[in-house]
Structure formats: C-alpha cells, structure tokens
Simulated scan of single mutants.
Amino acid sequence: MRQLLLLCASMASFSCLNIHTVIAASKIQLAQKLNCNNAQTQLEINRCAQLSYQNADQKLNKLYQQLLPKLSRSRKQKLIAAQSAWIQFRDASCEFEKSEYEGGTIAPSIYLGCLEKNTKQRTQELQGYLQADL
C-alpha cells in the first residue's frame, strides 16, 4: 500500500510539470550528449543524419536565393519551376531508396542521407549557374 501511495505521489508531482519543459530538457540533454563523429545508437545516427541534411538544405536555399535576383524574369520562372520539380523528384527518389528498409530503425537515416546527397549535388549545379555568365 505504501509503495502505491509513493507511486501516486510521484506521478502527481510529475503531472504538475509542464510537458514542454520536460520535452525541452530532454532535447537539451540529447544535444549535449550528441557526438556525430562517434554516434553510438540508431537514434543518434538518425539525429546526426537529420542535422547534416538540414545543413545541406540551408546551403542550397542560400545559394538559390542568391541566384534568383541575377536571372531575367523568364529564366527566373523557369528556375522556380525546375526547382519545384527537382524537390518532388528528390523526395520521391529518396522515398524509394528508403523503402528497402521500411519499418526498420535505419530507414530514417537512409532517407535523410539520400536527401543530403541529392541536395549537395543540386547545390553544385546551382553554384555552376551562379558562376556562369548569366
């Protein structure tokens, strides 16, 4: 009976905590422990893959925003259409690549790695456009 009362008391004190505070604290703890050069668990590998892809995506978007104002109206519209089609293709292609591992814990890192690889390739293409005589 005493153990049940202790359990209820601890649950009551936990329920008083703001769930966002608990989530934020766990994210901070994960970020502090995360070493992408030596990820030990699949969760860490997936999180590192996510961070790596986000970094590549930020570089792509920055370059894209630098390129757009340098183009004529007609070419700008064509690049916007091409970029939209490329994003759809990239995402569908990476979904296909991930499908081999569907349901497995490695599937997210396969998908994110594919996104990163394709995003870096597209960044190089846009860099070439930016450096070319427009």
Score class of each variant (00 low, 15 high):
residue 24 A to P: 02
residue 132 A to I: 05
residue 59 K to G: 05
residue 2 R to F: 13
residue 19 I to Q: 11
residue 103 G to F: 00
residue 21 T to R: 05
residue 116 E to M: 07
residue 114 C to I: 09
residue 94 C to E: 01
residue 32 Q to A: 11
residue 36 C to G: 05
residue 89 F to H: 15
residue 29 Q to V: 06
residue 25 A to R: 02
residue 6 L to Y: 14
residue 21 T to C: 08
residue 114 C to G: 13
residue 9 A to W: 07
residue 4 L to F: 14
residue 131 Q to S: 13
residue 107 A to N: 02
residue 57 D to M: 09
residue 29 Q to T: 10
residue 105 T to C: 05
residue 103 G to Y: 00
residue 115 L to D: 04
residue 39 A to R: 12
residue 134 L to R: 09
residue 41 T to L: 00
residue 26 S to P: 07
residue 42 Q to N: 10
residue 74 S to M: 08
residue 9 A to M: 12
residue 126 L to D: 01
residue 63 L to W: 10
residue 120 K to I: 13
residue 27 K to C: 11
residue 2 R to K: 12
residue 67 L to S: 09
residue 128 G to K: 13
residue 20 H to T: 10
residue 13 S to L: 12
residue 82 A to P: 02
residue 39 A to P: 11
residue 89 F to R: 15
residue 18 N to Y: 04
residue 131 Q to M: 12
residue 124 Q to D: 15
residue 88 Q to E: 12
residue 100 E to G: 13
residue 108 P to I: 06
residue 91 D to L: 08
residue 57 D to C: 08
residue 120 K to H: 10
residue 58 Q to F: 07
residue 116 E to N: 07
residue 76 K to A: 14
residue 58 Q to T: 12
residue 112 L to V: 01
residue 101 Y to Q: 01
residue 119 T to R: 00
residue 38 N to W: 00
residue 61 N to S: 07
residue 107 A to R: 03
residue 109 S to Q: 13
residue 63 L to M: 12
residue 12 A to E: 04
residue 1 M to S: 09
residue 91 D to H: 04
residue 134 L to N: 10
residue 51 L to N: 00
residue 108 P to D: 06
residue 101 Y to E: 01
residue 97 E to Y: 09
residue 81 A to G: 10
residue 67 L to G: 13
residue 54 Q to E: 03
residue 22 V to T: 03
residue 15 S to L: 02
residue 121 Q to I: 12
residue 13 S to W: 12
residue 33 K to D: 05
residue 80 I to M: 14
residue 61 N to W: 09
residue 74 S to R: 11
residue 129 Y to N: 08
residue 98 K to E: 04
residue 72 S to H: 06
residue 11 M to E: 13
residue 12 A to I: 06
residue 130 L to R: 02
residue 63 L to G: 04
residue 129 Y to A: 04
residue 100 E to Q: 14
residue 27 K to L: 13
residue 88 Q to G: 08
residue 44 E to H: 02
residue 71 L to R: 09
residue 55 N to I: 01
residue 120 K to P: 01
residue 1 M to T: 08
residue 80 I to C: 08
residue 92 A to W: 06
residue 74 S to V: 08
residue 74 S to W: 06
residue 44 E to I: 01
residue 115 L to Y: 05
residue 101 Y to V: 01
residue 112 L to W: 00
residue 134 L to P: 05
residue 104 G to S: 11
residue 40 Q to N: 09
residue 107 A to P: 01
residue 52 S to F: 03
residue 79 L to S: 06
residue 65 Q to D: 15
residue 21 T to Q: 06
residue 110 I to Q: 04
residue 96 F to I: 15
residue 5 L to P: 02
residue 87 I to Y: 13
residue 15 S to W: 00
residue 78 K to C: 03
residue 25 A to D: 03
residue 112 L to G: 00
residue 65 Q to M: 14
